[in-house]
Amino acid sequence: MDRDNEFEYRRRWRLILGGGEADEIDRGESPCDGNGKGDRGADVELDPTDRIVDRAMESLYGSERYGGLGSSSPNLARWLGDIRTYFPTSTARILQQDAIDRLDLHHLLLEPEMLSAMEPDVRLAADLLSLDRVMPHTTKDTARKVIAEVVLALARQLTAPTTAAVRSARGRSIRNFRPRHGELDWQQTIRANLKYYQPEYRTIVPVARIGRTPSKSSLPEIILCIDGSGSMATSVVYASIFGAVLASIDSIDTYLVGFDTSIVDFTDRLQDPIEVLFGMQLGGGTDIDGALVYCQGLIRTPHQTILVLISDLYEGGDPELMLRRVAQLTEMGVQVVVLLALNDEGAPDFDRQNAQRISDLGIPVFACTPDRFPDLMGAALNGQNLDRWIDRQDG
């Protein structure tokens, strides 16, 4: 190993392990050391930038629980500024979320000065929404601006693929083997009948006629039924944005219903997902059956209705009533889909017994990441077998 590479190797281990006692940790075998002996980084002299980075990491992940952050506003502001300056945006978001979770610094979300220094992301937006009831009036304007920034960024990212998937599904025609003259697909018909070409007459006998019949003209209905319990916070953010995007597509009718122990229909507010989010009032109990009863009353054409229940299935009421309601909706012809989460945070926590019993009814039950939701809606609108669709995603 040349001198430059050796210094970089030691520098990285020094930043990973920290200073002081942490430097003693790598006396054992290092994954980067082929001779079986650890390599020490304690003798590495950090430059001024690395020292700032090191202090920021030590404050959060040091041996003392509260590190160097404490509860001092100047310290917090300086730390937030440092991580935004010296770390990539994605890493800064992870660090600030770890600070909130590990050091129980939720109070910094209630101070406008602290909040304005943070890097906006969907987790931060979800935390702010969950604190809405206890948030001081002076902080709410700042919180709304942060949430608006997150919503606008996500909307820009999600609108195009969602619109494309839905419009493609709605614009697709149905193959028809007994077409009327105006529905005849000449190109497909000629290709299918090439084997019946008659050389002496220099013509094709159209034994098989293939046409395209436009898909049903009545608008399908999509009902997003969103669990507003605290554990579903990031899913609520994504679902509200998708609801607004779907509502902007004129070839479908979209409804959005939020619930805990009460039920709120946000359909008339879908043009403003920020208003939906602040009206959701995250937290409280869960009455899934009550929400499904309300959604059932919205259905006009069951066989053209897709009901997406976004919930961890921890039912606060009677689970048996919820299960019977889900079965009833399916028997009506409604296409029910249960999303245990709509986020990219990994495996969700959910009621496994309720999930299994709903799955036993033949209803897809799974967690979905935001990037796959547009394709999911396209597949559902096309009448595809969603179990096979899920298998393809897993594959």
Rank of each mutant, 00 (worst) to 15 (best):
E45C: 14
E45A: 15
D47I: 04
D47F: 00
P48L: 10
R55S: 07
E58Q: 04
E58D: 13
S59L: 00
S59R: 07
Y61P: 08
Y61G: 13
G62M: 12
G62K: 12
S63Q: 02
R65G: 03
R65A: 10
R65W: 06
G68R: 10
G68H: 09
G68L: 06
L69H: 06
S71R: 15
S72V: 07
P74A: 13
P74E: 14
P74L: 13
A77G: 08
R78L: 13
W79D: 01
L80M: 14
L80S: 09
R84S: 11
R84F: 00
T85N: 03
Y86A: 01
S90E: 15
T91K: 12
I94M: 02
I94A: 02
I94L: 03
L95P: 01
Q97C: 08
D98T: 13
D98K: 15
A99I: 07
A99F: 12
D101Q: 15
D101N: 15
D101A: 15
R102C: 04
D104P: 02
H107F: 05
E113D: 09
E113N: 07
M114W: 08
M114C: 15
M114G: 14
M114N: 15
L115F: 02
A117G: 05
A117D: 11
P120I: 01
D121P: 03
R123S: 10
L124T: 04
L124V: 07
A126Q: 03
A126C: 00
L128Q: 11
S130A: 14
L131T: 04
D132R: 12
R133G: 08
M135P: 04
M135W: 04
M135R: 08
M135E: 10
H137K: 06
T138I: 01
K140C: 06
D141C: 09
R144S: 11
R144I: 05
K145F: 00
K145D: 11
V146G: 01
I147P: 03
A148Y: 00
E149K: 12
V151Y: 01
L152C: 07
A153R: 13
A153P: 06
A155C: 02
